Simulated scan of single mutants.
Amino acid sequence: MADWCEQLLKLNFQKEKKDDGSISYTLIPGHRRDSYWTKITVKQVGSPTPDAWQVTCARSEIRIGLWKIHNTTQDISVVVHTSAQKMIEDINYQKRLKPSFLSKISN
């Protein structure tokens, strides 16, 4: 698992370069009824040389208010991995999570 960047791109992550020069990889798996996590972001961290990866998973839901519909973030998970192989395994696990039956029929 020497080239973790290529592994992420094969998993359909999008490479994004920020204004400050940092690079992150983002995956938006798809429709919320089919996929539990709506956004997974990976950033390489460490100083002075990057040696770990921060994986952020965020799940959002739609809430119906009195006057309009709101998108609300319900759960954010941040994990730091020191092994690229464990990072890829965790991402594959997060991608396989599915919403419960009640969440599917209520949205």
Rank of each mutant, 00 (worst) to 15 (best):
Ala2Asn: 10
Trp4Ser: 03
Cys5Gln: 00
Glu6Arg: 14
Glu6Met: 15
Glu6Trp: 13
Glu6Lys: 14
Gln7Val: 11
Leu8Ala: 00
Leu8Lys: 02
Leu9Asp: 08
Leu9Arg: 12
Lys10Tyr: 06
Lys10Pro: 02
Lys10Ile: 03
Phe13Asn: 02
Lys15Met: 14
Glu16Thr: 14
Lys17Glu: 14
Lys17Leu: 13
Lys18Asn: 07
Lys18Glu: 10
Asp19Leu: 14
Asp19Ile: 05
Asp19Gly: 06
Asp19Trp: 12
Gly21Met: 01
Gly21Glu: 02
Gly21Arg: 03
Ser24Phe: 06
Tyr25Lys: 01
Tyr25Thr: 05
Leu27Lys: 03
Leu27Cys: 04
Leu27Ala: 00
Leu27Arg: 03
Gly30Gln: 02
Arg32Asn: 11
Arg32Asp: 07
Arg32Gly: 07
Arg33Ile: 00
Ser35Leu: 10
Thr38Gly: 09
Thr38Val: 03
Thr38Leu: 07
Thr38Lys: 10
Lys39Pro: 02
Ile40Met: 13
Thr41Leu: 10
Thr41Ala: 04
Thr41Lys: 09
Lys43His: 08
Lys43Pro: 05
Gln44Met: 13
Gln44Asn: 04
Gly46Cys: 07
Ser47Gly: 05
Ser47Glu: 09
Ser47Pro: 00
Pro48Asp: 06
Thr49Ser: 03
Pro50Cys: 06
Pro50Val: 13
Asp51Cys: 01
Asp51Arg: 02
Ala52Gln: 10
Trp53Tyr: 08
Gln54Lys: 15
Gln54Thr: 12
Gln54Glu: 15
Val55Ala: 04
Thr56Ile: 15
Thr56Asp: 09
Cys57Trp: 00
Arg59Asn: 15
Ser60Cys: 02
Ser60Pro: 02
Glu61Leu: 09
Ile62Glu: 05
Ile62Trp: 12
Arg63Trp: 12
Leu66Gln: 02
Trp67Tyr: 11
Trp67Leu: 15
Lys68Cys: 13
Lys68Gly: 11
Lys68Leu: 14
Ile69Met: 12
Asn71Phe: 06
Asn71Ile: 13
Thr72Leu: 02
Thr73Tyr: 12
Asp75Ala: 13
Asp75Thr: 15
Val78Thr: 04
Val78His: 02
Val79Met: 14
Val80Asn: 12
His81Asn: 02
Thr82Cys: 14
Thr82Lys: 15
Ser83Ala: 10
Gln85Val: 01
Lys86Arg: 08
Ile88Ala: 00
Asp90Gln: 10
Ile91Gly: 04
Ile91Trp: 11
Asn92Gly: 05
Asn92Gln: 14
Lys95Gln: 15
Arg96Asn: 15
Leu97Trp: 08
Pro99Trp: 03
Pro99Asn: 01
Pro99Leu: 11
Ser100Gln: 02
Ser100Ile: 07
Ser100Arg: 05
Phe101Thr: 07
Lys104Glu: 11
Ile105Asp: 00
Ile105Pro: 00
